[in-house]
Design a protein around this nucleic acid. Structure first.
Lengths: 145, 145
DNA sequence: CGGGATCCAACATGATACTG
DNA sequence: CAGTATCATGTTGGATCCCG
């Protein structure tokens, strides 16, 4: 079986995994959740911590996370405004999978990037040399065993 | 510390997590990897299994995964063509984080969806009633303790 | 069968300006 | 400070047609 829901041999549009995947529709979501892991942060603190995020995307990401019940938003009626964000209990539960992915990235991302460079290098060669490069590669792999 | 790389108090653009995140740039990547977990599959099998994916996106996703060294592509010189895809050893390593996310989704996605409906329902109310709804909510939470 | 090439609509996102 | 609104642009992905 290759299913994600252990009931059909297809990966159904409505299986939990795909519904969950929709939460990570933008690349910032996971980073915001990760940043909030240690506790409460203000809007401006998040924007400082998450390098490169625009105000617009941070706002939008925070709204989505709040809407999905993963974070809590607290507005203090002061001037200038102050808004604090923190994980809800539900939000805390998603930290573990995020850490799993972070750990995988730290351990394997460089191998991925090496593979990518190798692929790109090879794709710039004429066809005949590609075959030769592959033979080389196989010989290299064999020598590692 | 809220960092993802345990070196700076920011989530750096080049930290492993963000470089890893770029692998999941499209929503199909994770599903394709999951589908290949049990073994080799042909292009057409993948398209059948992953409900809703277009030929174009499947092709593109498979190319990216191959480029990143996560899957292997084997072309059999027959007519009609036959192409088989399978995980590389590197690709196998990413299955565990994927399963972590799948398990989280199965366990928590319904709570997320309930929160979302609640949020949407509440946002359709006039402001005064929103406050009342929040008071209700707090009372409900308190009764659960 | 497993693509590649092209066109086009929808969406995502950055920049900028404005506000309580 | 923490947003919202608007505009401009780039990217994505589906549909379609073609090919060996």
């Amino acid at each position: 079986m290759v299913t994600f829901n252990d009931s059909k041999p297809t990966i159904d549009v409505l299986c939990p995994t795909r519904r969950g995947l929709s939460l990570l529709s933008n690349q910032w979501t996971l980073l915001v959740l990760g940043a909030l892991h240690k506790g409460t942060l203000r809007f401006s603190e998040l924007q400082t911590i998450i390098e490169g995020i625009s105000k617009k995307m941070l706002t939008q990401t925070l709204r989505d996370l709040e809407r999905n019940g993963l974070i809590k938003r607290v507005v203090y009626p002061v001037i200038p405004p102050m808004v604090e964000y923190s994980l809800t209990p539900l939000g805390e539960t998603i930290i573990e999978p995020i850490w799993a992915f972070r750990d995988w990235s730290e351990e394997h991302i460089e191998e991925v990037e090496r593979a990518r460079e190798e692929y790109d290098r090879r794709s710039r060669l004429p066809l005949q040399e590609q075959t030769a490069a592959l033979v080389q590669q196989r010989a290299h792999e064999a020598s590692e065993l």
